[in-house]
Amino acid sequence: MDRRIQKTRDSIFTAFSRLLSMKKYSQITVQDIIDEANIGRSTFYAHFETKDQLLDELCRDIFDHIFAKDLSSEQHHDFSGNKDFEAKITHILYHLKESKHDMKSILTYESADIFWSYFKRYFEKLFADFIDSERYHNVPEEFLLNHMAGSFVELVKWWMKKDMKPEPEVVASYFIEVIKK
Rank of each mutant, 00 (worst) to 15 (best):
M1I: 14
R4W: 05
I5H: 13
Q6H: 10
K7Y: 14
T8C: 07
S11T: 12
S11W: 00
I12Y: 04
F13M: 15
L20A: 03
L20W: 07
S21K: 14
M22F: 13
K23W: 02
K24V: 04
Q27T: 09
T29N: 03
V30D: 06
D32Y: 08
D35L: 07
E36P: 03
N38K: 10
R41E: 15
S42M: 09
F48T: 02
E49K: 05
E49D: 09
T50C: 00
T50K: 01
D52W: 07
Q53R: 09
L54Y: 05
L55S: 10
E57I: 02
D61C: 13
I62G: 03
F63S: 06
F63E: 06
I66L: 12
A68I: 12
S73Y: 02
Q75T: 15
Q75H: 14
H76C: 07
H77Q: 10
D78W: 04
D78G: 03
F79M: 13
K88I: 13
K88A: 06
K88G: 07
H91L: 03
H91R: 08
H95V: 06
H95P: 10
K97R: 08
K97D: 06
S99W: 10
S99G: 12
H101P: 01
D102R: 10
D102V: 10
K104F: 14
S105T: 14
I106Q: 05
I106D: 02
T108C: 14
Y109T: 02
E110A: 11
S111I: 07
I114F: 14
I114Y: 12
I114S: 06
W116R: 08
Y118V: 01
F119K: 01
F119N: 02
R121G: 01
Y122I: 09
E124Y: 08
E124F: 01
F127K: 05
F127R: 06
D129N: 11
S133V: 09
S133K: 13
E134R: 05
E134I: 05
H137C: 10
E142A: 14
L144S: 04
H147M: 12
H147E: 08
M148C: 04
A149D: 07
A149Y: 01
G150F: 04
G150K: 01
F152V: 11
E154I: 02
L155R: 11
K157I: 06
K157Y: 11
W159P: 00
M160Y: 05
M160P: 03
K162F: 06
K165W: 12
K165C: 01
P168A: 02
P168V: 03
P168D: 00
E169T: 02
V170D: 07
A172G: 04
S173G: 07
I176Y: 01
I176S: 04
V178G: 03
